[in-house]
Design a protein around this nucleic acid. Structure first.
Lengths: 340, 340
DNA sequence: GAACCTATTCAAAGCGCTTTCAAATCCTGT
DNA sequence: ACAGGATTTGAAAGCGCTTTGAATAGGTTC
């Protein structure tokens, strides 16, 4: 059933039917009712591609998934997508995935931009100086950054306060008497990891403590890497009495390393991990319960979707900068520093 | 730059240029070279939506993500998508995500089918009697099932041998002398979970052992649920000496429960977990290393993409049934049953 | 009653591509 | 030199929708 058929059936022109369906005002209310009614009865749905061609709008947003950077492999993306969906589906916006191999993301973005496959894209996990901002600006493809990057080019971003989160977490550990604190971070090329390290260092500096460089490390945010780094930290003498960890996945590994070293979490070693709020990894049911800096990545996904649609709708990207505060939730994995 | 411009620039008709670009044979080789050359120089890329409208092919496949079923929240989807991308990106096929809330997936599928938004869809995590097979058949939307379901309607599927995998794993534990084996399964409404239970039971039955119903449980495949079930099992007297677990995530929780009960994995309690091969959760680096039934979900995603494109291309779905064997990898988490 | 609004509808022209059908050109064999 | 076939190109008709510009009908105004 196409528009033409529906129009014929109603004895109206395509024009009027189209207008009635799309809510244009210059249509008699009675006519509109008839049209909407008939459309529902016949299960009419416009051909998405015809509409796209006619309007020039893709009604879709894109995400490039780097399938070889370990990035995508973790659950963060999934949660983020779920959040995105909450916004976009309501407005009949499609989410187009463009998995990219071999670090050749440029091609993916180009492809999306040129064929008018999508109206805009979402940039996740930005590097400290991320080329994609320039690339997309040149391509003229609207975008929003989830995270931040250094760039002269004005652009939209939304980020959590990674620096503040880790500053507060560090400060909390200091207040508990900890002096040797290990930082198990994400990969240092990502802005969020840099910001967390800055927050960590600044809290130490505020107390006149010089951080031990051996107690700062980062890597892919996996269970495995968490284990390895924690194992290394705990083998040092004197060893750290507290760990600050960039993800719950890593904290699982770190926890194992603590056990493996014959130590007890929350007593011998304290730990605070960053929690992106995965439904399948709940810090409240861990044993012991895990102290966290918490910010829902799903909520972020939802908001990112909203904002991108605003940009596509004409809002100036440079007016969009949101920095979300991060909550520090103290649970049982943190305790006073043990006596030396 | 559109086709018309390019044609004008070359002094050719749109027809010829279009044919040259799309590899039709009835075009002079020299002309084709000129066209391809000019297209590259001008960075010409056809408008995706115009092409879609003209050909009637969407060059896209769809995935409905149930955002409220806990399903999607786990990392399986992500790995699967990565695999999909390996196939589809090569052929310029888009992956369209359709997140669905409130269990109203029907609407999502309908939407994809009618607007010719996608050429076909992928069905993941089928229930034992999954309505979607009938729905999609009626909608006339090509699809492939990743997993199996009971249905009179002939359809394409690809699945791993869940039953065989768990039968072998159980048999291996029996060979090690274990008699009380706990099954920590996925949610029982899913076919894969049922099949695993069948495999488990049949291995026991083959030795004349009646399974203890209290040692069979299932739930969302999360760390948390793994912990809870294992904790419950281990509180029983006599307790199981081995656990068979449906996912690595659950096995993490189960492992914690074993430690919490003051037991040692691989000595007091053996464990075999199903490993979908996540790059961030490597059974080889766990302590102790984890015995697994292994089958890469990413490889499955890749194959599913290939097969779906074959179906879209005209291959009869009922000719597509692939059952993949599952490897049993014995590592340190399994050992002989302790004396009673 | 003529001129002028306003509200409502429609015919037709795109959107940028593919594809059918016809035409033009070039060979080949006789 | 010419019919007949193969090769190569092009004009034009869609694909199903939106949107412009024009037309019609029904008041209003002076």
């Amino acid at each position: 059933m196409k528009l033409k058929d529906l129009a014929q059936h109603l004895g109206l022109s395509q024009t009027t039917v189209s207008r009635a369906l799309n809510g244009y005002p210059e249509v008699n209310e009675e006519t509109r009712r008839r049209v909407l009614d008939a459309a529902r009865r016949h299960g009419y749905q416009p051909n998405a591609n015809a509409r796209r061609l006619a309007t020039g709008r893709a009604s879709a947003i894109g995400i490039v998934l780097p399938t070889d950077r370990n990035m995508l492999l973790d659950p963060h993306y999934m949660e983020f997508q779920a959040g995105l969906g909450e916004t976009l589906l309501r407005d009949e916006i499609d989410i187009v995935l463009s998995p990219s191999r071999g670090g050749d993301e440029t091609a993916n973005y180009q492809r999306m931009a040129v064929g008018s496959r999508v109206d805009g894209v979402i940039l996740s996990s930005p590097l400290i100086a991320d080329e994609r901002v320039r690339l997309l600006t040149e391509l003229g493809l609207p975008f929003i950054l989830h995270g931040r990057t250094e760039s002269d080019i004005p652009h939209a971003w939304i980020d959590i306060d990674n620096e503040g989160a880790f500053r507060h977490a560090t400060k909390h550990l200091l207040d508990l008497g900890h002096r040797r604190i290990g930082l198990i971070n994400g990969e240092s090329r990502f802005t969020f990891a840099r910001d967390r390290e800055i927050g960590f260092r600044s809290a130490l500096a505020a107390r006149g403590i010089t951080p031990e460089e051996d107690f700062i490390a980062g890597g892919v945010m996996s269970d495995e890497v968490g284990y390895r780094i924690a194992e290394r930290f705990l083998a040092e003498r004197p060893r750290p009495t507290a760990l600050l960890v960039s993800s719950m996945m890593m904290s699982l590994g770190a926890f194992r390393a603590i056990r493996a070293a014959g130590l007890e979490l929350g007593r011998d070693v304290s730990m605070i991990a960053h929690d992106d709020v995965f439904p399948f990894l709940n810090p409240d049911v861990m044993v012991p319960t895990m102290s966290t800096t918490r910010s829902s990545i799903r909520a972020a996904g939802k908001r990112v979707g909203e904002l991108l649609m605003e940009i596509v709708g004409g809002r100036a990207p440079e007016t969009i900068h949101e920095l979300w505060p991060v909550e520090l939730v103290i649970r049982a994995s943190t305790g006073p520093a043990p006596a030396d």
